[in-house]
C-alpha cells in the first residue's frame, strides 16, 4: 500500500504563493479561503536572521485527530495512499475537526461543510501530481509514496535533513520539510 506524502525543500521555496493560487483555480476554492498557504518563520535579531519559508496545508496525518473526532464519519482516510478527505454530505458542520487540527488546516466552506486540502486526489488518481506541486516555479515541492524506499520523496528524506510540523502533537504528519 502506498502512503502518499509531500517533501518540501524550504531552501528553494521563495514563498511566491503559486501553490496557493493553483489550488484555488484547480479546486475552485472560494474567495477568502485557502487550502494551502505560506508561512515565513523568522528567528534572530537584525542582521543575524534566519528565515524558513514553508508552504503548508493539511498534513494528511497517519494519526488524524480530525478523523477520530468526527461524529458522522465525514472525515475519513481514503483507501488511496492514506489521504484524509471529507465527504461533504456526511458533514454536519460541527467544527470539531477544525478544533482538533493542530495545524489549523481546515475551514468551513461557504456551503457549510468542513473543507481542506485533498492532495488533489482527483489528479493523484490519474497519476498526476497535486496542482500545487505541478505548478511550483522553484521545483521545491515533491509528492510521492513515502513507504516506497525508491521513491524520490523517500530518497530526499534519507539524503537531506528534514522536519515535520509540531511532531509533539503526535499526529504523525506526512508532509516533511527539507532544511
Amino acid at each position: 500500500m502506498a502512503r502518499f506524502g509531500m517533501v518540501i525543500d524550504t531552501k528553494k521555496c521563495v514563498g511566491c504563493m503559486d501553490c496557493v493560487v493553483a489550488c484555488k483555480t484547480e479546486n475552485d476554492v472560494p474567495e477568502a479561503f485557502n487550502r494551502d498557504w505560506i508561512v515565513q518563520d523568522v528567528r534572530g535579531k537584525n542582521p543575524d536572521l534566519h528565515m524558513e519559508i514553508r508552504t503548508e496545508r493539511c498534513n494528511h496525518c497517519d494519526n488524524p485527530p480530525c478523523v477520530y473526532c468526527c461524529p458522522t464519519g465525514a472525515s475519513h482516510v481514503h483507501d488511496l495512499g492514506g489521504i484524509v478527505l471529507v465527504t461533504h454530505d456526511l458533514c454536519i458542520g460541527c467544527k470539531a475537526c477544525l478544533a482538533s487540527c493542530p495545524y489549523d488546516t481546515r475551514f468551513i466552506h461557504p456551503e457549510g461543510y468542513a473543507d481542506k486540502c485533498t492532495f488533489c486526489v482527483h489528479r493523484v488518481e490519474k497519476g498526476l501530481d497535486p496542482a500545487c506541486v505541478s505548478v511550483c516555479p522553484t521545483h521545491c515541492m515533491y509528492f510521492g509514496d513515502l513507504d516506497d524506499p525508491n521513491s524520490q520523496v523517500s530518497k530526499l528524506l534519507t539524503s537531506r535533513k528534514n522536519h515535520s510540523l509540531i511532531p509533539e502533537a503526535g499526529t504523525k504528519p506526512q508532509i516533511l520539510y527539507l532544511v
Partner: peptide
C-alpha cells in the same frame, strides 16, 4: 516572527 498568508475565516 511568524507570518502566515492563510487568513481563513
Amino acid at each position: 516572527e511568524y507570518t502566515t498568508t492563510r487568513h481563513n475565516e
